[in-house]
């Protein structure tokens, strides 16, 4: 059975009905294990003290914020190329989750920044990039909600997502050029030298998995809602025509 068969709304509904529950359970388990482990069973950092433990919220939400946008880019492309409605609706469903993740990353960052840098906000490149990402999410969602016809909205938001991705990428480098930052290096680097030590790393991985499953469950739930709304829209149109 081809992957594309799930693009049929009926198949998608049947499949996700079975997947969504386990995704919620996995999210709950991984988040409770990861957060409890991270908050209570890891040592304090020798420089940052206990404030470092906010990484168990900050890093996964930031990671998801970026990757949800990438997922929206991919689903938008699939809609533009293959015209599967489910794909466009999945992009629409993911945006509010993505903007929430961005907001969590920004807020936890501010809370972490206050004791570390002495300020809630600094125009550091990473922080600024996330603020810009937040604006892109807002624009994307605003365009969805402004257009009445669902297919027109799907087309235009997909084009915006494509163009926005290019500009988000450009902004990232422009912002680096504009201000060298305060932010510490990546916590999740392929380069082991830069990475945080294993004591913090394993609970962080569990938290990441938790955030991922939470996203998966939420986006499936929201996509299913969007599919039902789309159906209701089609039924209204039919009845008006009949």
């Amino acid at each position: 059975m081809s992957f594309w068969e799930y693009a049929n709304p009926r198949r998608f509904m049947a499949f996700t009905d079975r997947v969504m529950g386990p995704a919620f359970v996995l999210a709950a388990v991984a988040l409770s294990v990861g957060l409890v482990w991270g908050f209570f069973f890891t040592p304090d950092d020798f420089r940052q003290g206990s404030t470092v433990k906010i990484i168990y919220l900050h890093v996964p939400s930031a990671f998801m914020a970026i990757n949800i946008w990438v997922m929206m880019l991919v689903t938008s492309l699939i809609w533009l190329i293959r015209r599967h409605h489910v794909s466009a609706l999945a992009a629409k469903a993911a945006a509010p989750v993505g903007v929430t993740m961005t907001l969590i990353a920004l807020m936890t960052g501010a809370i972490w920044g206050q004791p570390m840098w002495g300020t809630f906000w600094a125009w550091d490149p990473r922080l600024t990039s996330f603020l810009i990402l937040f604006l892109f999410y807002l624009g994307y969602m605003a365009l969805w909600s402004a257009i009445e016809d669902p297919d027109t909205a799907a087309d235009l938001t997909s084009v915006l997502c494509l163009v926005g991705s290019v500009f988000a990428f450009l902004s990232r480098y422009a912002v680096n050029f504009w201000n060298q930052g305060l932010h510490q290096g990546a916590s999740l680097s392929m380069d082991a030298e830069e990475n945080i030590s294993d004591v913090f790393w394993f609970p962080l991985l569990v938290c990441l998995a938790g955030f991922f499953f939470l996203f998966l469950a939420l986006v499936l739930l929201r996509t299913r809602t969007e599919i039902r709304k789309r159906r209701a829209h089609a039924i209204t149109l039919r009845e008006r025509a009949a």
């Binding site: 605003a142 926005g164 500009f167 422009a174 050029f177």
Partner: peptide, 29 residues
């Protein structure tokens, strides 16, 4: 993008301003 919308003006600003960021950064710099 916003030509078909009745009140597209404000939305247009919201969509366009983030896209202006790289140009603004390099231009002012």
């Amino acid at each position: 993008l916003t030509v078909g919308l009745k009140r597209g003006g404000l939305l247009l600003s919201l969509l366009v301003l983030p896209l202006y960021i790289p140009t603004l950064i390099f231009g002012a710099d």
